[in-house]
Computed example of a mutant assay.
Amino acid sequence: MLPTSHPIGGSSKLRGKSRSSLLWLYLRRLFKPSQMDFQYTFWTMLQLCVSPKTAYRHTSYHKQTKNHWARDDPAFVVVCSALMAAIAVAYCLAFSHSFGRSVLTVVSAVAVDFLAIGAVIATLGWGLSNKFLRRQNQHSHAVEQSVEWMYAFDVHCNAFFPMFLLIYVLQLALCPILLMHSILGRVLSAALFAAGSSVYWYITFLGYSALPFLERTEVFLYPIGGVAVAVPLAIVLGINPTKLVLSWYFGYIP
């Protein structure tokens, strides 16, 4: 009988070559907007808000058709970066006092808040899942699978978008209430940040649990427990997350 898969050593070389070509394709499309599927990106963003499981169900279809889990289209990252820049400009118009500080804030929002911190979280999730969460192969001839770093970053991007709508967009709209010198402002601000953080970790959990070769992915839900403890503590201590964030970026004095 012919073997049904490649030996593990050979498959690892093939995977390495495949990932290199995927990265090259990804970077090449980054400079060719005509090759980006923005329609599918906006559909995915909608599903992440109304039915995130549906969005990840299409991830498995992507694996079946292209033999990798990660996106080969940077449209999602481009759209999220543009949205981050736009909301940062809106905050600057509302709270900033200088053009130079506004430019720095916009660059920081995209390069640090979204991309750099996202890369760190993706790297931690990638390392954790590959080292501790992979199922042990039951068959000696089975191809060993692992989480692609680019997929881990996709998971961050997916989880970031609904959080962005809550913590960035909705917060700006509710600022007149959130900045009130009352317990109502503190409670609403803490609740908003708790909802955004919880949604982020829930969608992160869905992203890793969509991979059939991982187990115990509920560890990605554990940070929600920390959020549940932090919210009442912040309210009791009189901490308003919105005021803290505005103070950090704009020197806002309550």
Rank of each mutant, 00 (worst) to 15 (best):
V227G: 00
W248C: 06
K243I: 08
I239S: 04
V229R: 12
L211T: 00
A234M: 15
G238R: 00
N240M: 05
L206E: 09
W248M: 06
F213I: 08
T242H: 01
V229N: 05
L211R: 00
G251Q: 05
N240E: 10
V245A: 03
S209N: 15
G225V: 13
Y200M: 09
N240K: 00
A234E: 15
N240S: 02
Y222N: 03
F220A: 09
P232T: 14
V245M: 08
P223M: 15
A210R: 06
V245L: 08
I203A: 06
F220H: 14
Y249K: 15
F250R: 11
I235K: 06
I239G: 07
N240T: 13
F213K: 06
Y222E: 04
V231N: 05
A210L: 00
I203R: 09
P212I: 03
G226F: 13
Y200G: 10
L244D: 09
G251W: 03
A228W: 14
N240G: 04
T217R: 03
F205L: 05
A228N: 02
E215A: 12
L211Q: 10
G225Q: 06
P223C: 15
S247T: 13
G226S: 03
V229H: 00
S247M: 12
V227A: 11
F213N: 00
Y200Q: 02
Y200I: 05
F220K: 12
P241G: 09
Y208K: 06
P232Q: 08
W201L: 09
I203Q: 05
